[in-house]
């Protein structure tokens, strides 16, 4: 990692490649410092974070219960399954112009894009988690005359937890993608907006800062989810 940074710095300083294309770690650091002094940068950050949290939060709130319900009920699956599959098959970006028309270029269009990106992977994972629940555990529950609710809460739900986390992590990436793409396409504020502006005015350093911020956001979200998941998974033997 350190070596990578040094090499990057060396190439930038050597003048072999125009700094316009690749910038340099010190250049990026300087740009980051300058950005952090600007009020509108913090507004951008806040706007993007808000879009992410609203869209991703709504996706979790909708996808987990709906995915569980789809896994439990054949009828519901026949009813809603085709819509899910269609939505999954369409690249959500193609809907972007439509969403902008409906929701404007403020944050709500981005919230919708983020939501649409994240909702599907979470939903599909929750659904397959229910389907993967083990017959022998359900047999034990039935043998003890467990109620349907008890079977759900004591057998199916614990089995679905790792699936939900897998979906949530994957969905987090899709949600961030939604923020960038949405803001690049049409926006008045946000980190994507900042990147687009910087790109148009050849401020390579700033583009790098934006990209790094998104990367960091992705890593942080996944790390948080990992910590949270650990608390549910104490019963699992470690692989070694």
């Amino acid at each position: 990692m350190v070596i990578l940074l040094l090499v990057w710095e060396a190439i930038g300083a050597s003048g072999l490649v125009d700094p316009l294309f690749i910038s340099s770690p010190t250049g990026v650091a300087r740009a980051a410092w300058q950005l952090s002094q600007r009020r509108d940068f913090w507004t951008d950050l806040q706007v993007s974070a808000t879009e992410f949290m609203l869209g991703y939060g709504a996706a979790l709130a909708v996808a987990i219960p709906l995915g569980l319900a789809l896994g439990l009920s054949k009828r519901l699956q026949y009813l809603i399954g085709p819509f899910v599959d269609t939505l999954n098959a369409v690249p959500r970006v193609t809907l972007l112009p439509l969403i902008i028309i409906w929701c404007g270029i403020g944050i709500w269009s981005k919230v919708v894009v983020v939501f649409l990106g994240a909702v599907i992977p979470i939903l599909i994972n929750a659904q397959s988690g229910v389907k993967a629940s083990e017959a022998r555990f359900i047999r034990v529950a039935r043998s003890f005359s467990a109620s349907r609710f008890k079977i759900f809460s004591s057998i199916i739900l614990p089995g679905v937890v790792p699936f939900i986390f897998t979906g949530a992590k994957y969905g987090a990436g899709r949600a961030l993608l939604g923020v960038v793409v949405g803001e690049l396409y049409a926006s008045t504020a946000g980190l994507g907006h900042l990147i687009a502006d910087a790109g148009n005015t050849f401020q390579t350093d700033v583009v790098f800062v934006g990209a790094l911020l998104f990367m960091a956001a992705g890593l942080i979200v996944v790390a948080l989810l990992d910590v949270f998941e650990q608390r549910f998974e104490r019963w699992r033997p470690s692989p070694r």
Partner: peptide, 29 residues
């Protein structure tokens, strides 16, 4: 509840402790 099975494969719920597993039938009741 008048019958209970000791299953051939233990089929213990892996996310429950020994106490949690033994208590399971009582929870259902």
């Amino acid at each position: 509840p008048d019958r209970a099975v000791v299953f051939q494969d233990a089929s213990l719920l892996p996310w429950r402790t020994v106490l949690g597993n033994v208590r399971y039938g009582l929870e259902c009741l």
